[in-house]
Amino acid sequence: MSDIPLSAAPSAAQHWKRHSPLQSALRTGITVVIVAAVVWSLRTIEIIPEFLYDAPAQTMDLFARMWPLDWAFFPTDIFPALIETINIAALGTVLAIVMALPLSFLAARNVTRSPVARWIAQFLFVSSRSVNSLIWALLFVAIFGPGALAGVLSIAFRSIGFVGRLFGEAVEDAHPGPVEALTAAGAGTMSVLVKGYWPQVQPAFWSIVLLRWDINVRESAVLGLVGAGGIGVALDAAISNLYWDQAGLVLLTIFGVVWISEFVTSRVRARII
């Protein structure tokens, strides 16, 4: 069956390896680092066997306690908290947009010439993103006391970096043509931004805002665990009092809201983009 003489087998065949020495060294290196990291992490993890054996029973117990759900809790506590959660997400998102828009133009290479200004904007974005919204919430609760205000501010401050960075990138991708035409016609900075950039980046803007709003609905549902208002407060209260039938209803409500928000955002996105 060997129609081609075997003697012609090129020596390359004997030495063929899937990866070059550099590649395989790199792969080995990465594998070693990952394995070492996992081993290091596993060594200090304290697993208490009794807790583990107990886990299935505890989980069953958890669900048993949740059932039947305490529906009486819904109109009195959950519904108002739910509305507050939605308000926190909406106001937080809007506030974030108001603060992030000017910053993202400041961060965009093609709009802002000054590297210092760009650097400041980038720094603000990174700081905003590096602090989890729960940690922002801890800080704002410390300043303004527990409540929805702290929630709105923490959502807003966490979202600035997200919205600002993505929108800044969209502005950088904008086509220079219309902008140059307007500048050549002697338009002022404001009209260049509004008539030159805005029409181009508008779809990206809405898609970024929707994406963040969707995330913010999820986040505002847990802010209450540190006292920043919304449905998380009800969850925290139910869990501290071990009222699992109420906690179960809160979880179900959150599940429903997240579902609806995902449905709405995907619908709206399909409409405008």
């Binding site: 129609d3 075997l6 087998a9 090129p10 390359a12 065949a13 004997q14």
Partner: peptide, 13 residues
């Protein structure tokens, strides 16, 4: 090894 050798032969072929 035979498969690899054959693959190289075929490449030439």
């Amino acid at each position: 090894d035979e498969d690899i050798a054959r693959a190289f032969e075929l490449l030439e072929a």
